[in-house]
Design a protein around this nucleic acid. Structure first.
Lengths: 160, 160
DNA sequence: TCTGTCAAGTTCCATTTGGAACGATCTGTG
DNA sequence: CACAGATCGTTCCAAATGGAACTTGACAGA
């Protein structure tokens, strides 16, 4: 059990965080990044510890779950991650038999990929972890707020 | 000038991005991270190229601009960055004479820091760059939307 | 006062990162 | 058909990263 002194210390520890969230310049951007950082740190920390899947590996699987036959280059363009990192992630996923890499019959430079059965099975474990983390993040918002937030972010993402 | 074919290619290149923004699981989190990633990539890319200030260095200066006398440990807690990275950033800023490091007279472990005059001058160049990037990010939103977005993010950041 | 524990900041070092160069392949033009 | 230029994925390697150990200082309890 914590002493009153420890509680004071803890409050002081959060003081700068609150101050930054309330008063830093470029307020919206700061808050946005703060929330995004918290989200990815918790999610990828958990995925790596519990399932041994890294950020880049999850991103590849996520893209393949949305569209089978996606290539590494397309993932790089869509997610703003360097393609050599993705290349490594792809190799790791392939070695774990979580994805299958085909060769585009008409363009031999491209390697369309897809989740394997094992990959789909694993992804079904990963997805709820992301959903849980999102739920925790959105916890303070009611249904209408959530809908509006998602729409606002969509507007921004569409042109930025 | 681009050929019609090139335009088609460009549309195809964005296809996965649009698809992910519209249909990926954990939609709100994906959009949030997409926007946040775009923001930091552009901002820190520009700061590093034009002013030679890294992400960690900017974060330190930002915290000091909000509260003089902040310590490295407090910045680590408030911004979720590892303290050894911050330690390096602090040393780099000190060598450039952008910050001053004092010694807490009552607790000699702590080193409260502050922007130097040169640091304040440089920060006045950095801040508009962040503001511009934020403005670009928020461009599709009207004044009311912006206010609401910032409030929603504040609610989330307060407890997450 | 002495001792054990904890906190702030630094340093060590194995790992990760990503820009740049590369090889292979495709496409368009003469 | 040959060649120039672009594109996909990979590899190289210098630099950044961050977990863990370390140093120094604070402090509570015996």
């Amino acid at each position: 059990m914590k002493s009153p002194l420890a509680q004071v210390d803890e409050a002081e520890r959060d003081e700068l965080r609150s101050l930054m969230l309330a008063r830093s310049p470029v307020l919206t951007a700061f808050r946005l990044n703060y929330v995004a950082n918290s989200f990815v740190a918790r999610l990828y920390g958990r995925m790596e510890a519990e399932v041994g899947i890294t950020r880049a590996q999850f991103i590849v699987m996520l893209c393949l779950s949305v569209r089978d036959g996606t290539t590494a280059q397309e993932i790089a363009d869509a997610t703003q991650r360097p393609k050599n990192s993705l290349s490594r992630a792809v190799r790791a996923l392939e070695q774990k038999d979580l994805i299958e890499r085909r060769l585009d019959p008409v363009d031999h430079r491209r390697q369309p990929m897809g989740l394997s059965n094992a990959g789909r099975t694993l992804f079904r474990r990963l997805e709820p972890m992301a959903a849980e983390q999102e739920a925790a993040m959105l916890a303070p918002l009611n249904a209408e707020d959530r809908k509006r937030l998602s729409e606002l972010l969509m507007k921004m993402a569409a042109t930025f």
